[in-house]
Amino acid sequence: MRLNGMRFYRVSVVAGLVLVAQLFCASASAQTLRLATTTSTDNSGLLEFLLPGFERQCGCRVDVIAVGTGKALRLGENGDVDVLLVHDPLREKAFVEAGHGRYRRYVMYNDFVLLGPAEDPAGVRKSRNAAAAFSAIAGARAVFVSRGDESGTHAKEKSMWRAASVAPGGDWYRETGQGMGATIQVADQMRGYTLADRGTFLAMRDKLGLQILLSGDPRLHNPYGVIPVLNKAISQQGATLAQSFAAWITGADAQSRIASFKKYGQVLFHPAGGKGLPPRADDDS
């Protein structure tokens, strides 16, 4: 009994010391840059592929928080992250204009695709463009699964319903409130339609019955921008790192790395070279 008591005591002391040491590590860690980004850039593996290059250059660590664009912008507004990599040009513009961001640089683009079951009950394949496809879905009251989470993809979807002059609602319109991967899976199970970024779809394609039924409409352009956050709660170090990150990811090295990133033999993101706003930033106007 005494032996066990002593052993327990020793184990507790060692465990306690480890925890205290860990606490100090957490507070005295090396320089870190906090990046809020969308699930699409993280889940596709792009950041895992790109970031070590920047981490070597800056001698820092990049902490990635992968959330929807809406939440990422909110985290930026509260000063909880130093830099954003997101995809909703209209809200990004508003974010910078409201004084929350230093500037916005155009990093890369890919496109959204309209996914649906092979039997295509709404006849989306025959639509002449994306707006017509969305009104066909509403007309047929075919199941459409929406992100419903204020993400960049959700914003694009809402702008497509506006383009189709449809106010979606009713039992055919299902909102998941979840990320892209989860939403695609729900659509797959329900044999419904959904709007997805091409990268996430390609990464999951092998596990899905859904197919790309429509793509290539210029309205389905999906531009990603980088914004160093402007907030007095952010440390000088974080602000400096954020700006060097924005310069780095729009620079020649990272841009050619982006162009070389492939999945299933397909390029997922196309470099955009750090220009201001993408050509079709305001397809609502």
Binding site: S27, R34, D63, I65, N78, G79, D80, N231, A233, I234
Partner: peptide
């Protein structure tokens, strides 16, 4: 959150 009362502790995340 950094913009909240205990933000200066830098504990979030």
């Amino acid at each position: 959150s950094r913009s909240a009362p205990l933000g200066s502790l830098e504990l979030l995340y």
